[in-house]
Amino acid sequence: MVSAFGSTDTPTTNGYDPVTLATTMAQWVIDWGLDGIDVDWEDFAAMNLQNGQAEYWLISFTETLRSMLPAGQYLITHAPVAPWFSGDLYPTGAYVIVNENAGYAIDWYNLQFYNQGATEYANCTTLIDTSTTTWPHTAIFQINFDGEVPLDKLVIGKPAAPSDATNGYMDTSLLATCVQQAMSQGWSGGVMTWEYPDAAAPWIAAVRADSWPV
Results as ranks from 00 to 15, higher is better:
Pro80Gly: 07
Pro159Asp: 02
Gln27Phe: 02
Ala201His: 10
Pro83Glu: 13
Asp17Glu: 05
Val191His: 11
Asp38Glu: 02
Gln50Lys: 15
Gly186Glu: 09
Pro202Ser: 04
Asp107Gln: 07
Ala176Asn: 05
Phe44Val: 06
Ala26Pro: 08
Ile204Asp: 02
Val179Phe: 03
Arg208Asp: 05
Asp164Leu: 13
Leu34Ser: 08
Ser188His: 13
Gly190Ser: 12
Met192Leu: 07
Gly6Phe: 04
Pro197Asp: 15
Val81Met: 15
Asn48Cys: 07
Leu151Trp: 10
Arg208Thr: 11
Asn115Val: 02
Asp210Met: 15
Asp198Tyr: 13
Met192Arg: 08
Gln50Leu: 05
Ala82Pro: 11
Trp41Ser: 07
Tyr74Met: 07
Phe145Gly: 09
Asn99Ser: 15
Asp9Val: 15
Trp32Ile: 00
Glu55Lys: 00
Thr62Phe: 01
Gly33Ser: 09
Asn167Lys: 05
Asp210Pro: 00
Trp57Phe: 12
Trp84Tyr: 04
Cys124Gly: 05
Val29Ala: 03
Ala45Asn: 10
Ala176Met: 06
Ala54Asp: 05
Leu111Ser: 06
Ala205Val: 14
Leu175Phe: 07
Thr130His: 14
Ala46Pro: 00
Thr132Arg: 03
Phe85Asp: 01
Gln181Ala: 10
Met1Lys: 08
Gly103Val: 03
Gln53Trp: 09
Ile140Gln: 12
Thr8Asp: 08
Tyr109Ala: 06
Asn48Leu: 09
Ser163Asp: 00
Tyr104Cys: 08
Asp31Pro: 04
Pro202Asp: 05
Leu154Glu: 03
Gly36Asn: 10
Ala79Asn: 10
Asp129Lys: 13
Tyr169Ala: 00
Leu127Arg: 07
Val179Gly: 02
Ala46Phe: 03
Ala182Glu: 01
Ile156Arg: 12
Asn110Thr: 10
Gly33Lys: 12
Ser7His: 12
Ala206Asn: 00
Ser7Tyr: 12
Asp146Trp: 15
Asn144Cys: 12
Leu151Lys: 13
Pro162Ala: 00
Tyr104Ser: 13
Ala79Asp: 10
Gly36Val: 06
Pro80Ser: 07
Ile106Ser: 01
Ala122Gly: 09
Val96Pro: 03
Glu42His: 08
Phe141Leu: 02
Glu195Leu: 08
Thr23Leu: 01
Thr20Met: 11
Asp210Arg: 15
Tyr74Cys: 10
Ala102Trp: 10
Ser131Arg: 03
Gln185Trp: 08
Val191Gly: 00
Glu148His: 14
Met47Trp: 11
Leu65Trp: 12
Leu75Asp: 14
Ala54Lys: 05
Gln27Glu: 01
Trp187Ala: 06
Ser86Phe: 14
Glu120Cys: 04
Trp187Ser: 11
Gly189Tyr: 14
His137Leu: 15
Ala161Glu: 10
Pro91Gln: 06
Leu111Gln: 08
Leu154Arg: 07
Leu111Val: 09
Thr64His: 03
Cys124Val: 01
Gly147Asn: 06
Ala26Ile: 05
Asp38His: 09
Leu58Cys: 13
Ala46Val: 00
Tyr196Pro: 00
Ile128Asn: 11
Thr172Val: 06
Phe141Asn: 05
Thr13Met: 03
Val2Thr: 07
